[in-house]
């Protein structure tokens, strides 16, 4: 299938985007739902070696980018070339980021997770209900869930997590704060 041939005619995408620019939420949801399979197809075609979850991350990156620069769409011009230009640019950007990350990565096997001393391992007894915590984390909105996974579970620094999530340190802090408050509420309810 030709990726430049959309499911809807181009003028229909233009109309939806025009409505989205005017603040029509339904039109915007419809537009994003229609373009997402197309974006996924483009990502798959260009990044055949990626895992499905990495492909989905890139698709979401492109959706965020489309959203951030939606004012650059000129309703008088075709929609698909505009979308494809963003998608291709984000793919190149992603590849550059990946290469930069890989260049600084150090592979370590069997990294020690704690100290050997017995006294250092006593805290392991009080972790609480792990399945409930996992479930509560899974119920968070994606941005908050990613923030918790990267900062609290993955122990990444704010800067590293912001780079990985392609967001700002401030936005990540807000997401973490909200996530912790939601988790607290959800876990207290379950007890």
């Amino acid at each position: 299938m030709d990726i430049t041939q959309p499911v809807l005619p181009d003028h229909r995408f233009s109309e939806l985007m025009q409505s989205a620019q005017a603040g029509d939420t339904d039109a915007y949801i419809q537009l994003l739902e229609k373009v997402t399979p197309r974006i996924r197809q483009i990502v798959r075609r260009h990044r055949t070696f990626l895992h499905p979850e990495d492909i989905e991350d890139l698709v979401q990156d492109i959706l965020l980018s489309l959203h951030a620069v939606r004012a650059t769409y000129d309703p008088g011009r075709p929609f698909m070339p505009w979308l494809l230009a963003i998608a291709r640019n984000r793919l190149v950007d992603g590849a550059r980021r990946y290469a930069r990350g890989a260049a600084h990565e150090v592979c370590v096997e069997n990294l020690a997770v704690t100290f050997a001393d017995e006294r250092a391992n006593t805290v392991m007894n009080g972790l609480g209900d792990l399945p409930a915590l996992e479930q509560a984390i899974g119920a968070l909105p994606p941005i908050q869930r990613d923030a918790i996974r990267m900062l609290k579970l993955g122990e990444m620094s704010l800067k590293e997590a912001a780079d990985a999530a392609n967001t700002t340190v401030g936005a990540l802090k807000v997401a973490t704060h909200r996530a912790m408050a939601s988790l607290r509420k959800m876990l207290v309810k379950k007890q």
Binding site: A20, T25, Y28, L32, E56, P141
Partner: peptide, 9 residues
């Protein structure tokens, strides 16, 4: 991805 779309919209 569906959640991202809803949140963006």
């Amino acid at each position: 991805t569906q959640q991202v779309i809803l949140q963006l919209a």
